[in-house]
Amino acid sequence: MKILVIADHDNGALKPETSKVVNAASKIGSDITVLVAGANVAEIANSAAQIAGVTNVIVADDAVYAQQLAENTADLVVELASGYSHILASASTTGKNMMPRVAALLDKSQISEIIAVVDENTFKRPIYAGNAIATVQSNEDVKVLTVRASAFDVQASQGAVAINSVDSAVANTTTEFVSVEQTMSERPELTAAAVVISGGRGMQNGENFALLEGIADKLGAAIGASRAAVDAGFVPNDMQVGQTGKIVAPNLYIAVGISGAIQHLAGMKDSKVIVAINKDPDAPIFQVADYGLVADLFEVLPELEKAL
């Protein structure tokens, strides 16, 4: 069994999700190659070489891969795919965008967002917005998988293994990068934060999310939101925690003014400790919360900020 893991990075640094995907790969087999595709990614390849369990790193360093667009990155993966029994990527927006393209070009059915490895052919994944967990068995000779990184642990580090360059520059003939608008934030990324504080419809408007900021600053937390808050236009979609947004599993998750729709629970219920603040004592969020506070959020948020 040979496993190929596609590294998740932003051209600046390797994302911690990559290490978690290697963790998933290590439950399948021990021959693990990581592919780093991008522009000026020597440092990133170096980081990948130091993830415990990685046996080999391939780097495709060319300006054509700078934006990691799906079309040519998928072609590159297909070019290199021969001999691998499993191809894995994180279920980040980059992985979700590219991997089905790889699967279709290889004529394989893909299995998305695995949360557990049962054996080399069998995996668990959430379906119906996390209301059910399916165990599925792939009959393909090459398994194309995306991995829900939050369900796996970060690997330890090791002395760097060999890094091999491939001389490949597949042009993208259909799609051009125009611009990117990064959400500017001093705070940690949602999926990487040890503490997350999220607001829901109970916040009433976008301005009131400022009430969460003081608390987030004190806890070094990322700020998230429920789909209801995003749908209502309070905050941008990249803050959405839930089945259709980001899946998080921090040490501490604080849900404020969130009722706890199954859609939202699917995105945060693997958090270590969950706190819910809601004025409705019957809100379903209290059924998953370790600590519930039935109160008006506008009264207790300033109080909480002071108490920390």
Partner: peptide, 18 residues
């Protein structure tokens, strides 16, 4: 190409305290 082996409820989280 893929067999559905089993479908189960997700693990329930223990409710905590108020």
């Amino acid at each position: 190409r893929v067999t559905l082996v089993r479908v189960e409820e997700p693990a329930k989280r223990q409710g905590g305290i108020v």
